[in-house]
Amino acid sequence: MAKRIEVEDLDVYYGSFQAVAGVSLVVEPRTVTAFIGPSGCGKSTVLRTLNRMHEVIPGAYAKGRVSLDGVDLYGPGVDPVAVRRLVGMVFQRPNPFPSMSIYDNVAAGLKLNGTRNKQELDETVERSLRGANLWNEVKDRLNRAGTSLSGGQQQRLCIARAIAVRPDVILMDEPCSALDPISTLAIEDLIGELKEQYTVVIVTHNMQQASRVSDRTAFFNLEAQGLPGRLIEINDTETIFSNPSLKATEDYITGRFG
């Protein structure tokens, strides 16, 4: 299931503005990789190039190579819709579909792509909600609106929705920034379980979170406003937080700037 991501010499542009320059990194399967760095350094942008979500923004395009187990995601004839079935995403704010029940939210990816088999849907919903540690809380009210849940539950619902389509990779863009500490803890525990089956990449502003949940940490920075963001350093999380090789990384981690 889980796949290896290789990024080589990635540049990302929004129209004429270059947001990211020369990023190369490797994400091993069944690991959690955290992207950290100050606002505007391009970490979310890089994350979004991993499933071509940046293309949703008019004028955005990427150069370089992003491959999933050796398959170029930007190769000719590659359908971004197909890429997103392999690489799922969880967003900053919980965004369950308001017109759908809890059940339908989780089943949405399968149902809307044509699965009609009730048994298969039921099994997927249960498996996904269990996988997102939400099953026990919602199993008696699957027909209630997804938006009736609390913020933390909604975010876990969104994770369930993402894993329901059995992706190889799950991208998380600051998944806890809109949640309280208890809900955050629940999501962090969940990330630890998800990496047994998936490759996880998470963007976070929370240093403790990065050190708690990730195996590898990538530090992004930009020299000045208006210049493109760059990958400064990537290494094992322990090394980054205890013995970073660059001064800039150390300054950021110890809170001296950013």
Binding site: M53, V56, R84, G88, F91, P96, N113, R161
Partner: peptide
């Protein structure tokens, strides 16, 4: 954010 959520599930635009 809802449109993005749908795209991230691998739904084509018209769906």
């Amino acid at each position: 954010s809802l449109r993005e959520a749908a795209y991230a599930l691998g739904l084509p635009k018209w769906k």
